[in-house]
Computed example of a mutant assay.
Amino acid sequence: MRTLYFDCFSGISGDMVIGALIDAGADPVQMEEELKKLNIDEEYNLSWGKVVKNGITSTKFDVILTSKSEQTHEHSHSHGHEHSHEHEHSHEHEHSHEHEHSHEHEHSHEHEHNHSHVLHHNHGSRTYKQIVEAINEANFNESVTNRSLAIFKKIGEAEGHIHGLPLEKVHFHEVGAVDSIIDIIGAAILIHQLGIESVQSSAIPTGSGHIHIDHGIYPVPAPATLEILKGVPIASNDIRFELTTPTGAAIAAVLAETFGSLPAMTVESIGYGAGTKTFENHPNVLRIIIGEIQ
C-alpha cells in the first residue's frame, strides 16, 4: 500500500505540507491548473523554490496575494493566530529569484464567467457554507473534494466550539483567507496526484511560549490548534515558537490514520518542506516519506 508518513519533528503548517509534497516529486504546475477551478486565481500568485535550512535542502512554497485580493497584506482577521507567526506564508522570500518560480496569470472574461463566484466579494471573511459550495462546484476529483471538505469541517468545528457557534455560522476569517484555501485544497490535489493510499504521522510538536492573536496573548498551542489536535498525540518541544498551525494540525488530524514512529516500508521518495522561520540549531522543515507498506 502506497503510504505517506508525516515526520513532524519541527511541527506542521499548510505551506510546509505543500513544499514537502513538491519536494517529494509532486507536480505544482498541475496543482496550479486544478486550483483555477475555484475561480479565485486573480487573487494570488504561487511561488516555490529550493532553500537550505540548517544544511537540509528543502522546498519553500508561498502564496503571494495580488492587488486583486480582498485580503490585506498582513492578513488582518478577527482570529489572528493563523497568521500571527512566521511559520505560515511569509512574503519575505528566503530563496533567490533564479530559484523561484513565480507564476503570473492572465484571465479572460470568458474564463471568469465560466465558474461560480461564491468565494468572491467576501469583504474579509468567507463562511463555511461558501467554502463548501466552492469546493463542491469546482468539480475536483472525488478524493480531492472529500479530503478538502473533511479538513475544512475539522477546522470549522474547532472554531465553532471555541466561539460557541454552530458550524453553519462559522466565518473563516484566517482559514478562509486565500492562502489557507490554497494550502488545504492544494495538499489534497498533490496527495491524490502522488497516488497515496494511506497516511500516517509522527506525534505533533506544537512549540511553546506565547503568541499574540486578536483576542489577546495566548499560550502555544493556540486554542484552535489545540482543539483540532484532540485525540492526536502531541510531542513535547522546548522551541519557543508556534510550530504547528491550525491548518497544519487539521491536515494531519484528518488525513493520518495512525500516529507513531516511522512504519516498516520500502522508501520511494522523501520530501522536505521549509517553514519561514530559521532556528539556530534546529532545521525548520517538515519531512514526508513515501513508500510501500506490504
Rank of each mutant, 00 (worst) to 15 (best):
I131V: 09
V132F: 03
E133M: 13
A134F: 08
A134Q: 11
I135L: 07
E137C: 08
E137W: 10
E137V: 06
N139G: 08
N141Y: 06
E142F: 09
E142D: 15
S143I: 14
N146S: 14
A150T: 10
A150K: 13
I151M: 07
E157T: 10
G164C: 05
G164E: 05
L165Y: 00
P166A: 09
P166E: 01
E168P: 02
V170K: 01
H171I: 04
E174A: 15
V175Q: 06
V175M: 09
V175W: 03
V178Q: 09
D179W: 06
D183E: 11
D183G: 12
D183A: 10
I185E: 08
I185F: 00
G186A: 12
G186D: 14
G186W: 06
A187F: 06
A187G: 01
L190H: 09
I191F: 13
Q193V: 05
Q193C: 11
Q193W: 06
L194Q: 15
G195M: 12
I196G: 10
S198W: 12
S198K: 07
S198L: 12
V199I: 14
V199E: 09
V199H: 09
A203C: 12
P205E: 14
T206V: 15
H212S: 15
H212Q: 14
I213K: 13
D214F: 04
D214L: 05
Y218C: 09
V220R: 04
P223G: 05
P223T: 05
P223A: 10
A224I: 13
T225M: 08
L226G: 11
E227Y: 00
